[in-house]
């Protein structure tokens, strides 16, 4: 049996070599070739990240990679993990899997195969070097999710939403003053070309990624095959997280290395000014979400 893996990212994205292909190989090896996984990259099975969830729920593909934030209404608990100060960037993925039962209720419609915490979001700015929330007053910043929007608002800037591929043009012409996104964007979306300042070091949002599997497709496998998928999925989570962190670190490095560009690494004192404000957002969202939200925070933010 061959499983189609829908990947909206380009085929040369580091994730493919770093996590998706190893996942496919592990599945194939553990099942003695009875179950194989074919990766269709660059949106070959349909373009864009937004519809990935539908593709796997409805069964266009058996497996799909997406971000929980693209279908936020379905994953309020998973998205608690993205709030500033909740996830530890280094141990986040392992912490998530140790407490996966707290999230189980959200994965009844699809089978959760992999889940990993992303590198933290940073501020890519066109003209303004940001080292305090005051610098952000009134500036228009593109945000990837509702939670990130709340954080940006708390810091005094104005959140703007637009498709990720529009950021380059919008920042170049000045429709937006900056973008709040993880630092793989230096390369992936070429933001290193249009932004001049990059601020990191504050508590920040970490949008979790996942690989999902169609329920029926999973149910059709034998229990040994299911176990192979589960094991490969968990291993791929760790690999994907490592890949992501390495590329994100590279994104900061190459930004700093570009002539005329500046990376602003906040001091602890400077970061505190941001963290005080974002902590209020975290508290408010936890209260609003209810359910297991507080338990998830307690488990992750040790």
């Amino acid at each position: 049996e061959d499983l189609k893996f829908a990947n909206y990212m380009p085929p040369m994205h580091p994730y493919v070599e770093g996590a998706f292909q190893p996942f496919a190989d592990m599945v194939s090896e553990a099942t003695g070739g009875d179950v194989t996984v074919t990766i269709y990259s660059g949106g070959e099975l349909g373009p864009g990240p937004v519809e990935q969830y539908s593709r796997v729920v409805d069964g266009v593909a058996e497996l799909a990679i997406s971000l929980a934030g693209y279908t936020a209404s379905q994953f309020p608990m998973t998205l608690v993990a993205e709030l500033p100060g909740v996830t530890n960037e280094a141990t986040g993925t392992v912490d998530l899997w140790e407490n996966i039962d707290l999230l189980a209720d959200e994965y009844r419609r699809v089978k959760l195969v992999s889940l990993w915490s992303n590198a933290g979001n940073a501020l890519y700015m066109r003209d303004v070097a940001v080292d305090s929330p005051d610098d952000l007053a009134g500036l228009k910043i593109r945000v990837p999710s509702r939670n990130a929007g709340l954080v940006i608002e708390a810091w005094g800037a104005t959140p703007v939403s637009m498709p990720v591929t529009e950021i380059y043009n919008a920042m170049q012409t000045g429709v937006i003053d900056g973008a709040y996104i993880d630092t793989t964007a230096t390369r992936a979306f070429r933001l290193g070309e249009v932004a001049n300042y990059l601020t990191t070091g504050m508590d920040t949002t970490h949008s979790p990624f996942f690989i999902l599997m169609n329920r029926d497709a999973y149910a059709n496998l034998s229990s040994e095959e299911q176990a192979a998928i589960d094991a490969a999925g968990k291993a791929a989570s760790i690999l994907a997280n490592q890949t992501q962190l390495a590329v994100a670190a590279g994104g900061i490095e190459s930004f700093a290395a570009t002539e005329g560009k500046q990376v602003i690494e906040l001091t602890e004192e400077q970061a505190e000014a941001f963290n005080v404000l974002s902590a209020e957002v975290t508290a408010a969202v936890i209260a609003e979400t209810g359910g297991n939200a507080q338990a998830i925070v307690d488990a992750l933010a040790k």
């Binding site: 189609k4 099975l45 349909g46 519809e51 069964g59 266009v60």
Partner: peptide, 16 residues
Amino acid sequence: EGMRSATALLLTESYS
């Protein structure tokens, strides 16, 4: 890929 996948494709791609 099977008619079920094809109908799903029809829906997701029309919607998207």
